[in-house]
Design a protein around this nucleic acid. Structure first.
Lengths: 334, 334
DNA sequence: CTGAAAGCGCTTACAG
DNA sequence: CTGAAAGCGCTTACAG
């Protein structure tokens, strides 16, 4: 069933049928009704590839999410999808590998003329290279700042990772903690982990504590398993630690499990804090004190910036979403 | 940059260029090399829409995952993606809403000639209606049995939910529990929740206990929040309960949190078991005893069946993956 | 308001 | 081995 068949069945030409399908003006009410009826009856769906071959741009907002083990992203994805649906946008969510190439993926959708805009949920800025010249549609990077990229079609929304981490450390020092170990991602420039690392350092220093990377920072993937193993290793060293900062809730969960397995208690023996403020932090036993990223704000601003781009083609913006500490039961005063 | 430009640059015709792009035989080595070089240099990518307009079928395996809050699915997705990549399959993962229409989504990819096969991760069999006639490519439903559907292109892999749930209940009765409340999804025919409900009933009866749906079963969405609220409601009733069965790990987590918030302990006051065997069950405090679905098997068999379909167009199969109880620390003898 | 025609960028018989 | 041409199913000026 093609547009040609519909034309024949309706007695009109394919041009008129096309106009009806695309809700264009310049068709008599009579023709529109008749054609619509036939389309309905025959269950006709226009061939997307043929349309896209002709059309200049796509119509869907594509969300590219990085990583399959990230409930934080999932929570944001959920909000963003809802907001976009409310705006009657066609949205499509793609998951790619944590180490995948989101720009390559985005390029596909642009070449395909599928997407009219893209939201990156998580991003490795190092991948945003000269290929971006081809990616001419509005983009928003959520949870990572794209400010230093300075592409005029790429906005971004994220929390101030450095400030948030600093406050998290200061929260602990405020409770008298001095022997603190931070567990977070590998430090490489342009990445979130680096901002958080800097924030930690500042937090130590503002509290009058010395920050020794070798003693106070341990690299750790953002997962339960890694948090567990890293903490286990730490405990085996048998040095004096009163608090652990997990730079994700998953790391914090792993840390607590490892501490309990070592026969110690949280927070009685060791305090633990997390980062992200995901649902599990509120349902874990003990509830985990966590630096919450404001998921609603991140989602809302991401969508707002995208829509602004789409409708007014304004320049890009880089926004901070609020962070706020969610107190649980995993910290005690020492 | 189109195939025409490449033809002009290389001095060959577009037919020859097309053959080179598609790795077809019947091109001289000299022509192939020259054309390949020019394609390389000019960074040419053939237009996907034009190709798909002509081609008869797609080349990618599409995975349609239902729901954004399902770490169980995520763990399977992870495995499946890995296995397919190892087979050099092009794979694409789409997330749709928990209440979304996976068949409509699948149809899009088939009409687009994007997909050559589809894996449904989670499915509402009620949606698999006459539209399936149009979905002529190989499909596998993972985690739900599609046996009763009897479409000859739809295989499925899942655990035996009824048996697994029965064993889970019997595990508890084996530890002396008699006052057991099960929390699981709404019971509607053809759905997983119904099989699990039946399994529970059997488990009670085989243990010589009466099963009263009003007393022993509470409908509950598969989430932390719902598990929490449902358990809270249960505890407020002040009836004697020694064990709670959460038909997902998320429900079990919510239940434990609610029990602790009521000033009771798990397992000292109330035992709790979960279902799925997801990572969180092994990292929660206490570790949650859970009926594990064999994620590796589900992923492996799903991919195997799909490949069989693709390569040999054999009839479909419906397989059970093993389930096995993973003992944690959330159950005590009464 | 309507239709005939060109063209989007490919693939694929067909003829050489 | 190679090229010219038809055609995939649409959209969009253009002419009426």
């Amino acid at each position: 069933m093609t547009i040609k068949d519909i034309a024949k069945l309706s007695g009109y030409g394919i041009g008129t049928v096309s106009r009806v399908i695309n809700k264009q003006p310049g068709v008599s009410e009579k023709a529109r009704e008749k054609i619509l009826k036939i389309i309905e009856e025959s269950n006709f769906e226009p061939n997307g590839n043929a349309r896209k071959l002709k059309r200049c741009g796509g119509n869907t907002v594509t969300i590219i999410m990085k990583g399959r083990h990230n409930s934080f992203f999932m929570e944001i994805l959920d909000r963003i999808t809802l907001l976009l649906s409310e705006l009657d946008e066609v949205v499509s969510c793609q998951i790619i590998d944590e180490d995948g190439d989101e720009v390559a993926e985005a390029l596909k959708f642009v070449r395909d003329k599928t997407s009219k805009a893209i939201i990156f949920l998580g991003a490795n800025l190092a991948l945003f290279d000269e290929r971006m010249n081809e990616l001419e549609i509005p983009c928003v990077v959520a949870t990572t700042s794209a400010r230093e990229l300075a592409f005029d079609n790429v906005s971004s929304v994220c929390v101030d990772d450095e400030a948030a981490t600093m406050e998290l450390v200061q929260y602990l020092t405020g409770y008298g903690h001095k022997d603190i170990v931070v567990m977070g991602g590998e430090i490489s420039d342009k990445q979130i982990s680096f901002s958080r690392y800097l924030g930690c350092k500042k937090g130590f220093e503002k509290s009058g504590l010395e920050f020794d990377p070798d003693k106070n920072y341990m690299a750790c993937r953002y997962s339960y398993e890694a948090g567990y193993e890293t903490t286990k290793k730490l405990l085996e060293k048998n040095i004096h630690v009163t608090a652990i900062v997990g730079l994700s809730d998953t790391i914090a969960v792993g840390a607590i499990r490892a501490i309990e397995d070592a026969g110690k208690k949280v927070p009685d023996d060791i305090s633990v804090v997390g980062f992200d403020g995901t649902v599990i932090s509120r349902f874990y036993t003990p509830r985990i004190t966590s630096m919450g990223q404001d998921i609603n704000s991140i989602a809302k601003r991401s969508v707002e910036l995208l829509m602004k781009h789409i409708h007014y083609t304004l320049g890009c913006e880089h926004d901070y979403a609020p962070h706020n500490l969610i107190e649980g039961e995993s910290v005690r005063r020492v």
